[in-house]
Amino acid sequence: MTAADVVIVLLGVVAVGSGVLVVATRQLVHAALWLVVSFGALAGSYLVLTAEFVAWVQVLIYVGAVVVLLLFGIMLTRAPIGRSEDLDSGNRIVALVVAVATAAVLVTTLVRGFRSAYVPIKDRVGSGSSHTLGGSLFQTWVLPFEALSVLLLAALIGAIVLSRTDIRGAGPEPEEEDPAPRRRPAAPRGVVARRLGTAKRRTGPDDEDTIVLSRVDEEI
């Protein structure tokens, strides 16, 4: 084992270990924070693999943007911040079996295929710098690059359309038209509460009431 091997094994242990914590932890926010550790270790292993530019892009986009976006998602869906017991679904055993089988197949195949593959890392130093990558990005790969910019634009517009409520389409807009008809029969609150059963469920319609009232206020 060379020094680079030792470093990449250590970084890989950190990455896989924090990845396991991401899928095993009981606290939602901790999962996002362990994801930061995992992505950081992966960025370190990109550095060892002479891909400097990819490593910094990884830090900027994954650690900087994606994890922040996921944290925003956690907070906007009002997920429980503390420890919650029901994060795992009922088919956990099946999932574990499938994952172990996947790992076994992949690891067996890869170890058999690449047991003796060796790359002298000194020859590759500098092959992933931003100079060389920028050159090949804007010479060879400029067409996929432009296509990707169109895709990013489409994703941007899609996210905006999905998250805005005041865009009315040609057809009936589901999140705009739904609350009003659901309310129109005006079942007395007792009936609704009886139908909903528990007292915990009763918070749902109340919230919707306030939402609809505020919307009526806006229209007035």
Binding site: G12, L110, V111, Y118
Partner: peptide, 11 residues
Amino acid sequence: MHLVYPVVIAA
């Protein structure tokens, strides 16, 4: 560098 380590990590 031996390729088997990063490849197994990825798997």
